[in-house]
Design a binder for these strands. Sequence first.
DNA 1: TTGAATTCATTAACATCTTAATGTACAAAA
DNA 2: TTTTGTACATTAAGATGTTAATGAATTCAA
Lengths: 142, 142
Amino acid sequence: MAKPTPSLTVALLQAREAAMGFFRPLLNEHGLTEQQWRVIRILKEVPDHQLESRELAEIACILRPSLTGVLVRLEKTGYVKRWKPANDQRRLCVALTEAGHRLFDTMSGDMHQQYRRIKRQLGADNYKTLMTLLEQLQRVEP
Amino acid sequence: MAKPTPSLTVALLQAREAAMGFFRPLLNEHGLTEQQWRVIRILKEVPDHQLESRELAEIACILRPSLTGVLVRLEKTGYVKRWKPANDQRRLCVALTEAGHRLFDTMSGDMHQQYRRIKRQLGADNYKTLMTLLEQLQRVEP
DNA sequence: TTGAATTCATTAACATCTTAATGTACAAAA
DNA sequence: TTTTGTACATTAAGATGTTAATGAATTCAA
């Protein structure tokens, strides 16, 4: 009689919700959506703070059609710039602007503080183990 | 100079995306969205296969305004039924229909098979550890 | 070199997310 | 009892998720 097993994907979602509870107020203060912040954050940690939108979509877990709109709005608020590289007009490049860098730096302190609070509640060892396992899970494929 | 730390919330998202890759084809075959399946799945594992929509929203990580629409569509396709309990007309109750139970049972085998494939790639011990840590993370709060 | 595949971004249409605002039903205080 | 407060679901509006379709640029094969 088909019994449900505790769901991995639901557990991941609920855990993420719990974690996002620490950051959402800060994002709201700065008028950013989760996706906009992911884009800024990912661009910040990449060489040249610049990516092709295809790669950005993959890393940020934002589908291409959604990313189109996210980038339009982020450009409108001045945090990123977009352009098509001359050698391949199909592609689209994205980079952080100066304002984007400043925004990240402004929010960075509070972000770190929230991370410390999560680590304190979960335990530093548990936190490290969890990150390792998540990286392994990221690499599974059908 | 504000350096980004590997992001827990992004890691959770990417890991979930990897896991969902195993299930999305199955959901599509049956014309279900992720949220619709979460509702069915959660109702299945609850006593009486029935919940107040408030609790359901919390467990399924679906905000109340979204859940309204999800339930309307799930009722339209016949997998759940909704009603207001006589003693408190503010609340809304939801339960699986017969068709809902049959759908779950039909999909259950394939779902379990995908879980086995994920476990095989991640390792049974790792899988168990991960689930435990996710449950702990779910309980952190700001 | 021409024409058929391929690779991108974007648009379209519908479902869901997110916050704020509404409205109704119940509960508690005056 | 009337008033005030509270707990719900729902609506509203803009942003995003999701799949399929479109269209432009590039690549590859004939």
